[in-house]
Design a protein around this nucleic acid. Sequence first.
DNA 1: ATAGCTGCAAAGGCTTTGCATGTTC
DNA 2: GAACATGCAAAGCCTTTGCAGCTAT
Lengths: 145, 145
Amino acid sequence: MNSESLQFKNYIESKGLLFTPERQCVAEEVFASHNHMDAEELLKHLKSKGSKASRATVYRTLDLLVESGLVKKIDLGEGRLVYEHTAGHPHHDHLVCLKCGSVQEFEEPLIEQLQEWACEKANFKPTGHSLNIYGYCRGCTTGKR
Amino acid sequence: MNSESLQFKNYIESKGLLFTPERQCVAEEVFASHNHMDAEELLKHLKSKGSKASRATVYRTLDLLVESGLVKKIDLGEGRLVYEHTAGHPHHDHLVCLKCGSVQEFEEPLIEQLQEWACEKANFKPTGHSLNIYGYCRGCTTGKR
DNA sequence: ATAGCTGCAAAGGCTTTGCATGTTC
DNA sequence: GAACATGCAAAGCCTTTGCAGCTAT
């Protein structure tokens, strides 16, 4: 079991819940993936690996993973909700390709700073944000439509 | 008929379509509102004013308004899709209150510039973006929970 | 025994679509 | 009368929930 799964196990058990095989499967699949996956893709992957975790369990476990802080739920807009593990990921935002659907990450600390200022000016106490840039990725730009 | 409705009429007719009373009602309601409204609220307002426009027509007309460029569809995250008219609105982003649900706008041109740079670095050709900051608005901060 | 899990299927919430009817040119 | 609009209700999509049965302690 990798370190993230172990942390999740600890989190689960610290709440007096059970670290079941289904929960472990879902967690490991999320931690193993280096893409942004939505719940349905995750379910499909699990099925193809022979896991019997149901859709309901996938959704319920994803909620637990988000609660634990080990996974973030990202709203990419256009109805796309995806999950990414947080370990080793500094804060970042997303570049969403409108042609192939791929998602890249980017970091721009100064943007964060400017957001803080904007909030101060507006007397708004921020707790989080979501920044998505839509357009065409490098691969799709060459044969751009 | 106000200037925006007139522009919409021109757009509609330039496409060989009809500027029907239903379309006019929906458009005028959107242009008259200074809030961010979702389709359902819009429909409710229209009903309360005696308009007979149906839900389907509301959705279909909103699509036309967005196509025309006179209205923007904003994804506030968390499943909230709202519309705002563009006339006289410079580009801006949104502050979404997690307690009362209110939406404020803010402008920070430098953020736009930094986004451009981030895209250049990533070889990404941007066509648009969505930036939402979540937190608590001034009113909700005083009696904050 | 008791509390916690799971899968299934049904229910939700919002948006889109098919179709029959009505309108416009 | 050909193309376009409308309302209604049904269908879609994705996510959540209720419930009966199962598992772990």
